[in-house]
């Protein structure tokens, strides 16, 4: 099992419609799991995307950083 990344210990869900693409969550995630997506929501924002779920530890720092409470976190 050498060299394989540790399994994720948590997961998140980003509210696609409510995200205002402020990007604050992107650098906040210590594991760089989030990046800006490419789909535009109905308010005209290109929402953030949970791009690398396998690296997620469920630390919720992204959720803490979101001004619009778009992110829910589970462990």
């Amino acid at each position: 099992m050498k060299g394989t990344a540790p399994a994720p210990t948590g997961t998140i869900e980003i509210d696609f419609e409510r995200c205002k693409a402020c990007e604050l969550c992107v650098p906040a995630c210590p594991k760089h799991c989030i990046e800006m997506g490419d789909r535009i929501n109905r308010h005209g924002y290109v929402a953030a995307l949970f791009a690398r779920p396998l690296d997620c530890t469920g630390c919720a720092i992204c959720a803490e950083s979101c001004p619009d409470v778009c992110i829910r976190v589970w462990r």
């Binding site: 994720p8 210990t9 948590g10 997961t11 409510r18 205002k20 693409a21 402020c22 990007e23 604050l24 308010h43 924002y45 469920g58 919720a60 959720a63 803490e64 001004p67 619009d68 409470v69 992110i71 829910r72 976190v73 589970w74 462990r75």
Partner: peptide, 22 residues
């Protein structure tokens, strides 16, 4: 991952705010 560890506070209404992004 069944356990929710972060969700909207009860006293914060589940509505989109008028505040600017960020």
């Amino acid at each position: 991952f069944p356990r929710a560890v972060f969700s909207r506070p009860r006293s914060l209404l589940d509505v989109r705010s008028h505040y600017c992004p960020g």
